[in-house]
Simulated assay, not measured.
Amino acid sequence: MTMIIAVTACPSGVAHTYMAAEALESAAKAKGWQVKVETQGSIGQENTLTAEDVAAADLVILTKDIGIKFEERFQGKTVVRVNISDAVKRADAIMNKIDAHLNPTA
């Protein structure tokens, strides 16, 4: 089963951080994938990704509007960077592109 992990963060660290996390989770689950999203909001890190989560992940999604803390833990993984607004509004399209990347047709 495909495992996607993500970290969302926005400059103000409030609504968009959590809206993006919810949208990405929902879109990944709609594909039948396992998903875990860490948020780095105004109250700090929540739902922190473990070393096991990172090791099991097929792909990492990071929002790029603000620096992600501890990004070095994803070294060696396929990383997709998206705008926070795209994660909120276009999560399904993002997952479709990831699906095409993970499962190319011959």
Rank of each mutant, 00 (worst) to 15 (best):
M1I: 10
M1W: 00
T2S: 00
T2Q: 04
M3C: 12
M3G: 00
I4R: 05
I4G: 07
I5F: 07
V7N: 13
T8E: 04
T8C: 11
T8D: 03
C10P: 05
C10E: 08
P11V: 13
P11R: 06
S12H: 11
S12F: 08
G13F: 10
G13S: 05
V14D: 01
A15K: 04
A15R: 02
H16M: 11
T17N: 03
T17K: 10
T17E: 03
Y18E: 02
M19S: 02
M19Y: 09
A20M: 08
A21I: 02
A21D: 01
A21E: 00
A23D: 07
A23Q: 12
L24N: 09
L24K: 10
S26W: 00
A28Y: 03
A28R: 04
K29D: 00
K29N: 01
A30G: 04
A30E: 11
K31D: 09
G32C: 07
Q34D: 15
Q34E: 15
V35C: 14
V37R: 09
T39G: 14
T39I: 07
Q40M: 09
G41C: 08
S42Y: 03
I43P: 00
I43Q: 10
G44F: 08
G44E: 05
G44D: 07
G44H: 08
G44N: 06
Q45L: 10
Q45W: 00
Q45F: 01
E46D: 13
E46W: 04
T48C: 03
T48K: 14
T50Y: 03
A51L: 07
A51P: 01
A51E: 13
A51R: 05
E52F: 01
D53E: 05
A56E: 10
A56S: 10
A57R: 03
A57L: 02
A57V: 03
D58Q: 08
D58T: 04
L59Y: 07
V60R: 04
V60L: 04
V60A: 04
I61F: 04
I61G: 12
T63W: 05
T63C: 04
K64R: 14
K64P: 00
D65M: 05
I68F: 13
I68V: 15
K69E: 11
K69D: 12
K69P: 00
F70E: 12
E72Y: 13
R73M: 15
F74W: 06
F74T: 11
Q75T: 12
G76I: 12
G76W: 14
G76R: 12
K77G: 10
K77D: 13
R81P: 02
V82I: 15
N83A: 14
I84P: 01
I84W: 05
D86Q: 13
A87I: 12
K89I: 04
K89V: 08
R90M: 10
A91T: 09
D92T: 13
D92L: 01
A93C: 00
N96D: 14
N96M: 09
K97L: 14
I98M: 12
I98K: 08
I98T: 05
D99A: 14
A100D: 15
H101S: 14
L102R: 06
L102S: 05
L102C: 06
L102F: 06
L102E: 07
T105D: 02
A106S: 08
